[in-house]
Design a protein around this nucleic acid. Structure first.
Lengths: 274, 274
DNA sequence: CTGAAAGCGCTTACAG
DNA sequence: CTGAAAGCGCTTACAG
């Protein structure tokens, strides 16, 4: 009886023999390195395909000193919207797959004094090549500081402070404005705004967009129509918003500020010493 | 500039030197193996602690031929309740942490003819030591068959067919019955039941429990009060259930059928050849 | 453009 | 109860 899924492992060395090249050459092809003739590359690729070769991730990590691992960090205490996190998670996963990275998810509650220790343990235990941050920990200064100290690249989803941060954002303000303008165009005048989690930058920008559109339409702000929604730590009853209805129609949003994975991750690595 | 998080790695060998023992002995302590004197074990543990030693997961995987990885498989197409999946995910994660396993999540849509190929790729690429299945793929025969063929242990959350399967279930029928009985005790008589995703065993058992309680109370079944809810593939409007209210109070549920991780995983491994 | 040698940090299989 | 040697499957650093 063989170990799970390990009956007949094909190794890089086997591919090399089949293609009549050295292991190093197969490694070059595997990693898209230069200095391989087209003919050789083609031959190696054919052998890999024919033998259904799959590089062993642990061997690659150990020898190459990189984990091919992205850790997604979230605070499921301060961000109760699991649907939101699930969508981000699926997106990160998809991107990781494309680049042949694996992904791990880590709930990391900001509250609690051992936050940094748990972050350190995560890094030491799993050596992620990079981490993805979700609101609100995108803006938690001690976290960012520690990641920089330990030289772990990070990308942020919708961070509040965008300067110099790699990540994905959209123009929340313009989007909120567009929603309100859409409702205005439909003839509505009493338009409410439910404020999101206060710690999130998106909440502020959306409120600003709402106010902007209302003001532009000459409508005075009605404090009754602007309410704080969203859970913080203790569950509260959801805001009464029965009068709100979704409208269909496209929303303008700016493209992500960067592609993923961040180009600079490779750059960083290239300039590293072992 | 050092590689991310890798400035001053402490290796098993370093611990061995500090504790004046061989690497093999440290390995024994690390893996809770027998044949180490208490004094030696204590000394090694002290050194590990003092040096904040963290075994390198890739080295362990490569040499030991096990990944310390559990893959959680789900179908986020047929199971639209991301909150449900998120809760399971957090639970699996917690259990993995306790046992020093890492976890990866994998959406795996049943529809699509390349299902098995994607499963194979997952196994070959990541070598999970075991997988956790969530409804409805807990009962997808081709999946289970392939897992057995490739000798990958699996545990199922609330599977429809429980015979011989390792996993976690609760007495859904008794729980539904208890809910209905609670409502009956409050004096209600018009009690509706929204049927869950038809593929899930839980949906059937809950319906059975509802019917049981209603019948026991001598109430005839009103077909208007039993409606199919839940999304399948195409989104439909949610069932009208405004008359339903949550009641508080404890629900009876049987303990999980097994502990986690399944004992048999280790047994399986022990009987394996390399 | 290609390859031989050494090494990553652990565990296995064996010996005592 | 303890350890010396070999090896897991890759990559690095170097040589040509």
């Amino acid at each position: 009886m063989a170990i799970a899924g390990d009956s007949l492992r094909v190794r890089l060395e086997d591919v090399a023999r089949a293609a009549s090249v050295s292991p190093k050459t197969v490694s070059r092809v595997l990693n898209d390195e230069a200095n391989v003739s087209d003919a050789t590359r083609k031959r190696v690729l054919a052998s890999m395909e024919a033998m259904d070769y799959r590089p062993h991730p642990s061997a690659r990590s150990l020898a190459g000193n990189r984990s091919f691992l992205v850790a997604m960090l979230y605070d499921n205490n301060d961000n109760p919207a699991s649907t939101y996190l699930a969508e981000i998670q699926d997106g990160v996963l998809e991107a990781c797959d494309e680049h042949r990275y694996s992904m791990m998810v880590r709930p990391l509650r900001m509250r609690g004094d051992d936050f940094i220790r748990r972050l350190d343990a995560l890094i030491s235990d799993h050596h992620p090549d990079g981490v993805v941050l979700t609101p609100p920990i995108t803006d938690y200064a001690p976290l960012l500081k520690r990641l920089r100290e330990r030289n772990v690249p990070y990308a942020s989803v919708s961070p509040m402070l965008r300067n110099g941060v790699i990540g994905v954002t959209m123009d929340e303000q313009a989007a909120a404005r567009a929603i309100v303008e859409h409702l205005l165009a439909l003839g509505h005048r009493r338009i409410a705004h439910v404020i999101g989690i206060a710690d999130h930058g998106a909440s502020r920008w959306r409120l600003a967009g709402y106010r902007e559109a209302m003001a532009a339409a000459g409508l005075p702000e009605d404090s009754e129509l602007v309410v704080q929604g969203g859970l913080r730590s203790a569950p509260v009853s959801p805001p009464r918003a029965n009068s709100l209805r979704w409208s269909s129609g496209p929303l303008p949003c700016s493209p992500p500020t960067t592609t993923w994975p961040p180009v600079s991750w490779n750059a960083r690595r290239a300039s590293s010493t072992r």
